[in-house]
Design a binder for these strands. Structure first.
Lengths: 263, 263
DNA sequence: CAGTGGTCTAGACCACTAG
DNA sequence: TAGTGGTCTAGACCACTGA
C-alpha cells in the first residue's frame, strides 16, 4: 500500500479529522491514529479497558503492525493510551487508586507529598457569567455548576488550609452534580469526573500569577488580608480540545511550592 | 544480531553509562543513544552542527538504520537533537536568532510576547554560599559568579521593570565572565552561555511561590514594598544532569502571567 | 540529481503476562 | 503455552533539500 493512499474501511475519515490549514499529506499511521482517537471520543473503549491488539488493529485497517504501532506510540506519548507489555494497550484512566493528583503541582517544601484533606464549601447551579461562558465554550446564559472548596494539610489536630479552589463546570456535562453528591465523594475531583460523568481530562493550560489575598479569601485560608498567594487559573480539556473545566486556585505557598519541569 | 548482545565497537560502553539500579536488559537502540549522548557531552559535534547521517551511524555501529533511527527519535524528543528532513540531524542549539527565550514562561496578559529590555545591575565573583554550593554541586567555598539584572517592558518612553533575576553560576565553567563582558552582550543569557562558554542548557526545574516584595526588591521593580511577586527558583542542567545555573527570578504579574501546559 | 530523513512492509525473535 | 507488546532487520519507496 502506498503511503499517500487513504484507508478503505471508514471513508472520508481523513477529511473529517483534518482541521489545520494544510495537512496536504497525511501519513498512514496518522490516519490510524485519528481513527483511534475518534474511537476514544465515541466511547468505543472506556478508560481502563484494553483496546484491540496491534495485530488485530493491523488486520482491521489493512496495514502492517509497525504502522499501527507508530500510531499507538504517539497516543501513548500523549497519555491517551498506556502500553503494558505482555498484557495489551489500555485507555488511560485517572480513576485508579494510584493517581492521587491529576494536575496539582503543589509540593511541600519539606518531606513527602501527603494527601490533602478536602472540605466542600459551596456547590450551586447557575447561569454561566459571560467570561466563564466564553472560556468554557458555552452559549451566553447556559447552565453551569460552581464549586468552591478547600484543601488542607492532613494534620489531624489543626489542619491548615493550603488551597482555595473555585471551579466552573458546564451544566450539560455535569447533569446530576449536587452538593450532596459532592460532599459524599471521597477522592480527587477528576476521578469523580471520569467515574460519574464520563468526562476524561486530557490536558490543561494554566495562567499563574502572584496576588494579594482579599478579605474573604484571607479568612477562608486563615491568613491576614493582603498575604501573597499563588493564583492558578486552569482550563482543562477533554478529547478534541473541548474545555470541560475552569478552575481558579489560590495556593498558600509559605510551606509549599509549585513544582515545574522545563525542557 | 540478537537484542541482548552489546555493541562491538567501543567496548564496555553500556557499563560506563549505566547508573540506575537494574537496567538488566538494555536494548540496542538505547546503547546507541548512550553513545550519541556521550558524543554530545564530549563535544564531538557542536550545537547547530549536523551529526552523521543515519546510514553512516548504522554502518559505524553495525546495526540497522531503524535501530539508529529509534535512538535518534528519543533524543529528538528530549530536545537534544533536531531532525530536518532532506538535510540531516543537528545538535540542538539555543544560540540561534529564532530562540528568543529559553525557559522564561512569562506572557503579557494582552497582546503578543514582545522582547524585553535587559539591564545589568551587578556581576561579581565570590565564594559560593553553602546553600548555593549545595544546589550547584560545588565544593564548599568554591568560586561562583553572581549576577543581578532586570528585564523591562520595551516601552521606549517609560520602560517598566517586570523581572528581577538573581543568578549564581559555577566559577569554573564561566571563567572569563565579567561585568563588562555581560554588559556588552546583546541577547539572551542562555545564548551567551552556549556561544561564549560552551555551556548547553538541556532542562530545568523550577519551584514557584508567591512572596511579598522586600524593600530593596520593591525599589528595583518600582513597586510598593509588600507587593505580591512570583518567585521562580530555577535550577538549570546540562548534559548528564549536571547543574550549571541557579536562578531566582521575581516576576511582577500585574500585566503578565506565567503560562504552563499540563498533560 | 544524489543524499537526507520519513513512511511502510514482512518477518524474525525476545520479554513479559496469565491461564 | 498462547498471546501481548518490544526489539531488530532488510529492503522498498516517498518527501524534502540543495547543488
Amino acid at each position: 500500500m502506498s503511503a499517500a493512499s487513504t484507508l478503505p474501511d471508514p471513508p472520508a475519515a481523513e477529511a473529517a479529522v483534518a482541521a489545520e490549514p494544510a495537512p496536504a499529506f497525511s501519513p498512514l499511521y496518522r490516519q490510524i491514529k485519528a481513527l483511534l482517537v475518534r474511537g476514544l471520543q465515541a466511547g468505543d473503549w472506556l478508560p481502563g479497558q484494553a483496546i484491540p491488539s496491534e495485530i488485530e488493529l493491523a488486520a482491521r485497517y489493512r496495514v502492517s503492525q509497525g504502522t499501527v504501532r507508530k500510531a499507538i506510540d504517539e497516543m501513548a506519548m500523549e497519555n491517551l493510551l498506556v502500553r503494558r507489555q505482555g498484557k495489551g494497550t489500555f485507555v488511560a484512566s485517572h480513576a485508579e487508586q494510584a493517581t492521587q493528583y491529576r494536575f496539582l503541582r503543589l509540593m511541600p517544601d519539606e518531606g513527602e507529598a501527603a494527601a490533602l484533606q478536602r472540605r466542600l464549601l459551596d456547590c450551586r447551579r447557575m447561569r454561566a457569567p459571560s467570561q466563564v461562558a466564553r472560556l468554557l465554550d458555552l452559549k451566553a446564559g447556559e447552565a453551569a455548576v460552581q464549586v468552591r472548596r478547600l484543601l488542607l494539610t492532613p494534620d489531624p489536630v489543626s489542619p491548615r488550609p493550603v488551597v482555595l479552589d473555585d471551579l466552573w463546570l458546564p451544566g450539560t456535562l455535569f447533569k446530576g452534580l449536587t452538593a450532596e453528591r459532592l460532599a459524599a465523594w471521597r477522592g480527587p475531583l477528576y476521578r469523580l469526573f471520569e467515574a460519574e460523568f464520563s468526562v476524561q481530562t486530557i490536558r490543561a493550560e494554566e495562567k499563574i500569577r502572584a496576588v494579594a489575598a482579599g478579605p474573604e479569601e484571607a479568612a477562608l485560608l486563615e491568613l491576614p488580608p493582603g498575604a501573597p498567594l499563588l493564583s492558578v487559573e486552569r482550563l482543562t480539556f477533554t478529547y478534541g480540545d473541548r474545555p470541560v473545566e475552569l478552575r481558579r486556585g489560590l495556593y498558600h505557598t509559605a510551606a509549599h511550592h509549585y513544582r515545574n519541569e522545563l525542557s
